[in-house]
Design a protein around this nucleic acid. Structure first.
Lengths: 335, 335
DNA sequence: CCCCTATCGCTAAACGTTTCACTATGCATA
DNA sequence: TATGCATAGTGAAACGTTTAGCGATAGGGG
């Protein structure tokens, strides 16, 4: 049905080797160039990527693997990655694994089976073995947002520790002493780091941490909702709560609305990740803003560099800074 | 490097044809099954999808093409599509075209070049020619959200007309007469239909439409923001505003917050698309909820049916109903 | 004992490219 | 004129599968 390189050869009277050479940027007599171009247009020829991939073991395609398509944090990064890769002639294949470990493995294998030349992964599992397998096959890999043990590759991370430090410090300098934190799962890389920042700033300001104020959710709306309720129902509730991702921030706000908690008079809040959120909520919400654009760009450019064979400083680990956006959801406590 | 079917043949002493047959579900003696399985495990064999695709012209992969990755409306549908396709052994390749027409064409070609067996597309351009080309190549296509002229395929749509009708009717029955609408671009399929509903309910209730109350945005946050301001700054402003997509609803709320407009006392509002939004805003927002889940499921199941060769009622056009979620953002006007 | 059928396995060609090694051509240099 | 050397083009093998067609084997019915 579809025209092949053979048809072009027949049309032009040249050999397939010549056609192939031209298509791949080789030198051909001017008159043959014209002839081939004509044939391509006439026969509506398009390269068969399967055949090419079979020969070359390349696809000019980058696989992107993220936890969940509905998380704006993920898609926003992906979009930035795409922008850059596209400019350099790479296509992308986006997969999400729905926060599911077995599915992560499956999708990763899928991408590998599609002969991607590179991979950008926001990993979920603790186990880097399958990723290492891909690397061993010669696929260049860049991890984003979360590091992984036992994997030999570049990583682009956010400075979670200092971002938490800054947010909680904001509370402290405004006079808060009982500060709740709604954090992610204990075992998750980013959650661990964010909690570390919480501890460290308490230590630096000589404020004792009340472990009851530390709540572990699962980074989803529901747990934000439930844990905020737990916090405000405590016998001695916190005067401020720091929530460490976007979805849980949403959930927390739902709880706040439902229980008619006045922000910031009854409770001070710092949320996470979404600029729009800050403007939609009343009063405007103070948030920690992650550098989605920088993450995407850094990861994409790094991968491009590796694909070009430039392995300087491998493996490299970037730490990108967050921004603390101060609005009206934190009250100053007079002492 | 990687093991091929040949290696398996060598390992087991069988021919490659037998291996291939077994891998593809053919019958093989029990002892050979065991032997082959052992070889596969031992050599860590994985099918080379390129070679397979080259022979079969199939990939067991479905391409999904959406306007923008950051739009929760899109990704939410995609996620539902994926769930179903995955259950049936299909993988998906997700592409977005950033609301850009040339890029839409490019990405479509990319997907076609990857030999996708089917396509689910939320189209942007008016021109269905390239899509028709794909169809002519034997790729099964299902369009979602927007229909397209000159394309011979199934479509899964939302009943935009009646959803607008219902939303505006809610205002009318509560006594509103001057009802603004922040709509999408004039030429966009869904926007046209939503406007049609607005007109029709006015006609049915014998309320004259003031054309100045009809605003055309571009379905992005900014235009929601600007157009709401335009509306409230009118000499004779509307008492209610209906906003026809999620992003513009966000923008409108930003404007409302900024100008300290009291909802619903100064202005009644019905927004679009996002259940979470309803609970985050104060007062809770009445919204039109589109059936993302049903759209995804309908499209996926339909495509699966077509892929199985079942072409009954082709081309079929689904019209899915929206739900009007009534909360506290609409005021009753006593007359 | 023969024939039929079912089952399993094999040979070999084909899919559409890329690429290596080679030939042919033309031109400048000695 | 002979030599050397780019440059353009070619033939053929290879990439890892699938599959049509055929051969071999075995079991069962007559």
């Amino acid at each position: 049905m579809a025209a092949t390189i053979k048809d072009i050869a027949k049309y032009t009277g040249l050999s397939i080797a010549t056609i192939s050479k031209y298509i791949n940027g080789g030198n051909v007599l001017e008159k043959n160039k014209i002839l081939i171009d004509e044939a391509i247009k006439e026969l509506n020829y398009q390269v068969n990527t399967m055949a090419r991939g079979l020969k070359t073991n390349k696809s000019n395609t980058i696989g992107i693997l993220i936890p969940k398509l509905e998380k704006i944090f993920c898609t926003s990064i992906v979009s930035n990655i795409e922008d850059i890769l596209l400019q350099h002639g790479y296509s992308t294949m986006i997969c999400d694994y729905k926060e599911d470990f077995p599915l992560e493995e499956e999708k990763l294998k899928f991408l590998v089976s599609k002969m991607v030349d590179g991979l950008i992964i926001m990993p979920h599992g603790k186990d880097g073995a399958i990723i290492q397998e891909a690397i061993d096959k010669g696929i260049k890999v860049v991890l984003i947002d979360r590091a992984l043990d036992g994997v030999d590759c570049d990583v682009v991370l956010v400075d979670n520790m200092n971002s938490s430090y800054g947010a909680v410090e904001e509370f402290i300098t405004k006079g808060h002493k009982r500060i709740g934190i709604i954090n992610g799962p204990r075992e998750v890389f980013t959650a661990k780091e964010r909690l570390e920042g919480y501890y460290r700033v308490h230590r630096d300001y000589s404020i004792k941490v009340d472990e009851d104020l530390i709540k572990h959710g699962d980074f989803e709306i529901d747990s934000g909702y439930k844990l905020l309720i737990e916090l405000i129902k405590m016998e001695e509730p916190p005067t401020a709560v720091y929530i460490t991702n976007y979805e849980m921030t949403l959930g927390a706000i739902m709880a706040i609305n439902e229980y008619n908690v006045n922000i910031p008079n009854q409770l001070s809040i710092i949320g996470y990740d979404n600029l729009q959120l800050a403007r939609i909520i009343k009063p405007p919400l103070s948030i920690v803003v992650q550098p989605m654009k920088a993450i995407g760009e850094t990861a994409a450019n790094l991968l491009l560099k590796r694909l070009q064979g430039d392995m300087t400083n491998f493996p490299i680990r970037y730490r990108l800074k967050t921004e603390l956006l101060i609005k009206d959801s934190v009250r100053k406590i007079e002492s």
